[in-house]
């Protein structure tokens, strides 16, 4: 062990001293290229932000490029007056929270159950779940099925179909299999049933993987918009925020049609400075903010999740 460390040191030292000209050129190029790509990834976020907080007149005349000018937050305040935006935010939040909670609970339970070899028909049931990952009937039959089930124009269409999620079942099952079996055995000798063991042993121990699937699930719920578009056409009050943003983006109507005329929030200020573009971009910013807020917390779970996904069920 000790000699290993020494060896590493020597290697590292050698490596450091042996930097050739080619190495230096490569390093510089490498650093610069990555810096460039990183900037390209980050710039749209930044550009959107400075566009929404800069003076709208300067934005309109194309003078905001690198730095914000005339900073104000009236765009964000004015969103309170945008028609239907509030309900969409609410739908998106409820859908994300409820949908993720139900999915994580169900996935944890299913993942636990399919590790039990004594289950009647276990192999068949597990495959029954997993096959659905690779095969689907297609969009139209899916839509007709949802409509047959009465899940069109119905909020539950966002929640119920997502309860059984095969990919996440694989992740949880793999994880639970790695938990030492004696922990459960000792509880079973003490007379604890499956539900009790799941609740008091498996659930607390699998929290890392549950956090991972919760994050993926929540991001998926927050970002989805095609299901709104296809299933909720009869009830616009059930549109998610993302679909609402899509509608705004493609709206050619003028600002007054979009805004709630009943609002009295210093109407004259809003009218004089707001334009369609600033409203669109501000709504987009509001849609991004939750992702950026949870992003730092979720980052440490990525690698774990994606690595476990590579281990097939």
């Amino acid at each position: 062990m000790n000699s290993d460390k020494k060896m590493k040191k020597i290697v590292n030292k050698k490596h450091k001293y042996k930097l050739s000209k080619g190495d230096v050129t490569f390093d510089i190029l490498n650093y610069v290229l990555f810096a460039a790509f990183t900037l390209i990834c980050a710039f749209p976020f930044y550009y959107l932000l400075i566009n929404t907080i800069s003076d709208n007149e300067l934005v309109r005349t194309g003078q905001i490029m690198w730095l914000p000018k005339g900073i104000h937050f009236r765009n964000y305040i004015s969103l309170l007056n945008v028609n239907n935006l509030g309900t969409s935010v609410l739908v998106s939040i409820v859908r994300t929270v409820l949908g993720t909670a139900v999915m994580v609970g169900a996935t944890a339970f299913i993942g636990y159950l399919v590790t039990k070899h004594e289950m009647w028909g276990r192999k068949f049931i597990y495959r029954f779940f997993i096959i659905t990952m690779y095969f689907n009937a297609g969009l139209i039959p899916w839509y007709l099925n949802m409509s047959m089930l009465g899940l069109t124009n119905n909020f539950w269409a966002y929640i119920i179909p997502g309860i059984v999620s095969p990919y996440n079942i694989i992740l949880v099952k793999t994880y639970i299999e790695s938990i030492p079996a004696d922990l459960e055995e000792s509880a079973s000798i003490d007379g604890a049933g499956y539900l009790l063991r799941f609740r008091h042993i498996i659930w607390p121990l699998s929290k890392p993987i549950l956090a991972t699937i919760a994050i993926f699930g929540a991001v998926g719920h927050w970002n989805s918009f095609t299901d709104s578009m296809i299933l909720m056409s009869g009830r616009p009050e059930l549109y998610t925020l993302q679909y609402r943003l899509y509608i705004y983006m493609n709206s050619t109507s003028n600002l007054s049609a979009l805004m709630n005329s009943g609002g009295n929030l210093s109407q004259s200020i809003i009218d004089s400075t707001l334009n369609m573009r600033s409203v669109k971009l501000t709504v987009a910013m509001v849609t991004i903010i939750p992702i950026l807020l949870v992003y730092p917390f979720m980052q440490r779970y990525f690698t774990k999740g994606i690595m476990m996904g590579a281990v097939k069920g």
């Binding site: 790509f37 980050a42 943003l245 849609t287």
Partner: peptide
């Protein structure tokens, strides 16, 4: 930073 874009929707 390069991972962030994966987490926003296509609408964004």
């Amino acid at each position: 930073i390069t991972t962030v874009p994966n987490f926003i929707s296509w609408v964004l």
